[in-house]
Amino acid sequence: MSKRLAVVGTATLGVTAAIVLGTAGVASAHVSATATSTAANSYTTATFSVPHGCDGSPTTKIEFQVPESVIEVTPTVNPNWTITKATAPYTSPPASADDESAEDAGERVTSVTYTAKTPLPADERDTFALSFSLPDGKPGDLVEFPALQTCEKGSVEWNQEQKAGEAEPEHPAPSITLTAAGATDDDGDP
């Protein structure tokens, strides 16, 4: 009797492990982001992971769209990839209120593209790091970096918005969830 329970328990444990490992594989199949800091208004380095190619095809390029709420971004060099940045004139409500012209307002990075020197095999992963200041916001707000993964054959747009309380979309945009802003010197007693 106890031998039979041990066999059934072992089989149940094996099935449970297979389900958990299978789910972990699916969850890690997305282009994802992790950050050194998630506090609103803090400086962070976000590391984006590209875990696979497009339906078995090697990755040749990955382009990250920079949200308007992120003013400056600095890409980290990856020796296997070349980096290009697209920019656009930056104008903010405070700039126009001060009667600054568009030329005086400067430019902001709108996207960062990493192009492979040699295509990344579909069964290998790589990471890409961007440094920037997180925007102001409430805890739980998402800062999304839609990405376009281009492969030798095909492409995948990682651009679907993730909504709280809803199932994860098929191709979610890599994102960082803001936490409460850290205390500053101005928050202390006079």
Rank of each mutant, 00 (worst) to 15 (best):
E100I: 10
P89G: 03
D189K: 07
Q149R: 08
P174T: 05
P139G: 00
P139S: 07
D104E: 14
A86R: 14
T10N: 07
A18C: 08
T74S: 15
P169S: 02
G106V: 04
S49N: 13
T150E: 05
V7C: 04
G25Y: 15
A40I: 00
E152P: 05
V50W: 05
K138Y: 15
G165P: 03
P51H: 05
D187F: 03
K61H: 06
R4C: 02
A116N: 08
A17N: 06
L13Q: 09
A95T: 03
G140R: 11
G137V: 03
E166P: 00
L5R: 13
V112C: 10
V66L: 15
T115V: 07
L178D: 01
K85N: 09
V7T: 13
F132C: 02
S133G: 08
A24S: 12
P89S: 02
W158T: 01
C54K: 01
T47R: 02
A102W: 15
E157A: 09
A18I: 03
P79E: 09
P139C: 02
D186G: 10
V26A: 06
G53A: 01
P93Y: 14
K138N: 11
E68G: 07
N159R: 04
G106R: 13
S155I: 00
S111D: 12
L130R: 00
S155E: 03
E144T: 04
S96G: 04
T47M: 11
D186Y: 13
H52K: 04
A173V: 03
A35F: 10
V77R: 13
A167Y: 15
L134Q: 03
A27N: 09
V7K: 15
I83M: 10
Y114G: 06
T113N: 04
S175D: 08
E68L: 11
D136E: 12
L21A: 12
G25T: 04
C151N: 08
T184F: 09
E152R: 00
H30A: 13
V31G: 04
T44W: 13
V143Q: 12
S133K: 10
S28M: 12
Q65V: 08
F64I: 04
V8A: 13
S155Q: 07
